[in-house]
């Protein structure tokens, strides 16, 4: 996860963006490869693990990016501008859909310390699955700040910029989101602490 993230920023510089604005397909491919997993991750978590929906939204985002990148003037960070497109695409798609699909059966997870060592890996996978499920069940205005914070590692100020709200609102939504996650997954408390 981290190597992709750290390599992304240096590649997409002003020159690449200007090439994209001039319609250069290879430059656009470079931009796509840099951000595809991050955009897809936000989409997949926004649609409860529905990979088809996530792939559709990811394509929509990049198509929109291609057609509107000429409007990007560099007044804000390119990533802020991109994630604004992602956030809007997810919100639009969610409005179209009236229901969310579950990530799969959320089976109760045993306490990690009760397990044999070879089972702990699977416990961690189950933990990640439980978190995915709980994230998917959050209301969109709590979920998006969490995804932007944990997937994209944006600061509160950048999240506020992407979502078009104040930094205080971001802090408040993250507070609510974190509490909601803790409430839904309180049975995993020991597992999280021991897994640290």
């Amino acid at each position: 996860m981290e190597p992709r993230a750290v390599m992304a920023e240096p590649i997409i510089d002003e020159r690449v963006i200007k090439a994209c604005q001039k319609g250069d397909r290879e430059a656009f491919r470079l931009l796509f490869e840099t951000y595809r997993d991050r955009v897809y991750s936000i989409a997949v978590y926004s649609f409860a693990g529905d990979q088809t929906a996530a792939a559709d939204v990811t394509q929509q985002v990049f198509l929109k990016l291609l057609t509107t990148i000429s409007q990007f003037r560099g007044d804000s960070q390119f990533t802020t501008w991109l994630y604004r497109l992602v956030a809007n695409a997810c919100i639009d798609e969610q409005r179209k859909r009236k229901r969310f699909l579950p990530f799969g059966d959320a089976t109760p997870v045993n306490r990690i310390e009760d397990r044999k060592p070879q089972e702990r890996h699977y416990a961690k996978v189950e933990l990640a699955d439980s978190v995915k499920l709980a994230i998917a069940e959050l209301k969109p205005h709590f979920r998006l700040p969490i995804l932007l914070k944990y997937m994209e590692e944006l600061s509160y100020e950048e999240i506020a910029d992407v979502l078009g709200c104040s930094k205080g609102t971001v802090a408040s939504r993250l507070n609510r989101g974190h509490k909601e996650l803790a409430r839904r997954l309180s049975h995993l408390r020991d597992q999280v602490v021991l897994g640290d």
Binding site: D37, Y45, V131, Y150
Partner: peptide, 15 residues
């Protein structure tokens, strides 16, 4: 606890 739980979200690789 919520912060720690959210920290377990992995990046998903696109198809």
């Amino acid at each position: 606890l919520g912060v720690k739980l959210a920290g377990h979200l992995p990046l998903v690789v696109a198809p």
